[in-house]
Design a protein around this nucleic acid. Sequence first.
DNA 1: GTTGAAATTAGTACGAA
DNA 2: TTCGTACTAATTTCAAC
Lengths: 212, 212
Amino acid sequence: MSEISRNGVGGGGQPGRIGIGLELDDVHMKILEVLRENGRISVAALAERVGISRANAYTRFEALRADGAIKRFTAEIDHVRAGLGITALIFVTVRQQMWKQFRAELARMPEVEYCAITTGQHDAMIQVRVSDVAAVHTMVTDRLANIPAVKATETVFILDEVLRRPYVLPSDRDQGRPARRPAQEAQGGDVPLGKMRFVGAAEGRAALRKDD
Amino acid sequence: MSEISRNGVGGGGQPGRIGIGLELDDVHMKILEVLRENGRISVAALAERVGISRANAYTRFEALRADGAIKRFTAEIDHVRAGLGITALIFVTVRQQMWKQFRAELARMPEVEYCAITTGQHDAMIQVRVSDVAAVHTMVTDRLANIPAVKATETVFILDEVLRRPYVLPSDRDQGRPARRPAQEAQGGDVPLGKMRFVGAAEGRAALRKDD
DNA sequence: GTTGAAATTAGTACGAA
DNA sequence: TTCGTACTAATTTCAAC
């Protein structure tokens, strides 16, 4: 995993599966667009909204599922109503060569909703949902701190979640085709670049180098 | 929004809706559990898995939806297969009293999948999905930098997404009942615990206070 | 809150374009 | 490949219990 392009939630499934099994055309994208905002729509209704026949819709639907482009269908739940009103981000510094242990421990923590390995000052960011502030404290000081793989943590609370899109797709904008924007001239000089930091990988991990 | 308990993705829907419209019992929770891992299951099959009648399942299903406990159903899509292989986190420092503008601009950026307001050094964290590294650079230097509300940014790349749970529920573990764990020393800024830091709110924003 | 039966809709198969 | 249709299976809905 020394390449930044290898990401995507591959933790559980088949890691390292890079080859494209299915060429996604415009119709596939349109299907994904509909499905991400209404995961319970019937295939018949889906076919109509996309403008293809029912049989075709079934074929493509199955293909997308089998290929893994659609990983699963899920219900978005209101955490506050479900009793988990507190959300926190915990940035973790992991001891080198102890990633495997770290991942294994994560799997044992049900309150962890999301975990990503990042470049920058810390090595990983985990998002947790709990019922109260005390539970965050317990989680960090009792559970995380007791994992040898964890060298240090930094915790911030989420005060409000401004937006969550079901899932971003390339068709959402112009960015679909790698914009031929050398990026060098993209910001002539009228941009206060001084305040925009890009933080590469820390000690030991893959260096971030491609565009600057 | 001076209370930390008011979170949850309220950006689009009815912000500030705090009152509980529906008392969630164990059966409701079980329904949510099933639905979060299989959003396309039929209500009939759902009823069987939960152990209630079809009609009851339908009633509760509708109630959960109407109440907002279930916000929507969505398909989880493999971003890499969909052509968005790069994920980045951008931590943004926002100029005070310009939050409204910041939010408005966010809505105009389709590559933003998630945005949360946080305590700590920065004011907000946004997660973006784009096709290549150059697009991140363009996004930050061209688009974010040109928003007056944005004072500074810090960008890290996501190298791997270790886990994403559909949605964490209280029934997942013991944390359901607020653990009677005083945790007096937990906040106020930093914790005297060696390498475990808790970072409170920065200048101007709501202080973190709820449980002490 | 449950069961059962009718009406509707979903999913499958197959031939034609 | 995709479409259209006919066939079968399952689901939603509504009734009475």
